[in-house]
Amino acid sequence: MDFNKLYIIPIIFLVFFYCSKGLSFEYIIILLIITLVFVYIIIQYFFDNNLATYITFLALLLNCFFSFYNKDWLIFIIMIILLVYLSFFKIEDMLYNLANLFYNRANNFSLMFCNWAIKFDVNQADIFKLKGDILLEKEEYEGAFECYKHVLYFENDSNTINDIAVSLEYMGKYDEALNYYDNSLNINPNNVLTLNNKAILLIKLKRYNEALSLLDEVLDIDENNKTAMENKEKIINKKN
């Protein structure tokens, strides 16, 4: 849903709110224009669309409580309708953004929101990618592998295949991991992340010459790549 369509929510709310105060029609129009211009400027210059959505949701929720407390039943019913409307259209984005918010801060909460999003049929590549990353950090490698495989239904790209290879490597399936690294490089031969990851696995397998060749490729692409330089130094030290 286009975020701009959500402006109908504060517009409807403001019209009813100003009407409930007994203001004249002309005064309502002036206040409405001023308020919307101010809100638009704030959103465009200080916030992203997701945060603006949360602010709108919170404002509706607060006004719902205030209208209930003051027994303004018409306003209360309108607030409930608008909250349901907003939740219906934005629940998928909200769950994903909450999962992303807690990522690397409280991964158990992040994982919980990922699972809720999937239950709500949020079949976005991002949610499965995020869940895979969390499971990888929690050393649940098979779960991460399944998540990354699911991402392939949406994005059959080099980075996704690299993620699958990483999870296979952590599972000790080195031959399969190498095949996936190769598949990743077939799609994008200059994928520095995959080149480095494959080189690290080759070092683990003591295939130093092959690893050096890959690290040289990385340094040809990015001469200041710290990972490649450190691993190249490790190989040279091992050979000496």
Rank of each mutant, 00 (worst) to 15 (best):
N197Y: 04
T227I: 12
N115Y: 04
L74I: 12
K119W: 08
K131R: 12
K238G: 04
K232M: 13
I200L: 12
L215E: 02
N225R: 05
H150S: 03
N115E: 04
R207G: 04
P189S: 13
N225D: 15
L62V: 15
E140G: 08
F46W: 04
L212D: 01
S158H: 02
D48L: 07
F128G: 13
N123L: 04
I9K: 01
F66P: 00
V84N: 15
S158V: 00
Y208I: 01
E142M: 05
D72F: 14
K206P: 02
N183Y: 13
T194V: 07
I81R: 08
I235K: 09
I161T: 07
D121S: 15
T53M: 15
D93T: 13
L51S: 07
N70G: 07
D216R: 13
Y170A: 11
L136C: 02
L168M: 09
G132P: 00
L61Q: 06
N225H: 14
Y85L: 06
I127L: 06
L212W: 04
L135N: 06
F17Q: 00
S24A: 13
I235G: 11
G22M: 08
L178P: 06
L23S: 07
A99H: 10
D48P: 02
D220Q: 09
K198M: 12
N179A: 15
D222R: 04
I11A: 05
N225I: 04
L212A: 02
A228C: 05
Y103P: 01
L32E: 09
D220L: 10
N224Q: 13
Y153C: 05
N159S: 15
D93A: 14
S67A: 15
F109V: 00
L98G: 06
G132N: 00
P10W: 05
E26H: 10
V218N: 10
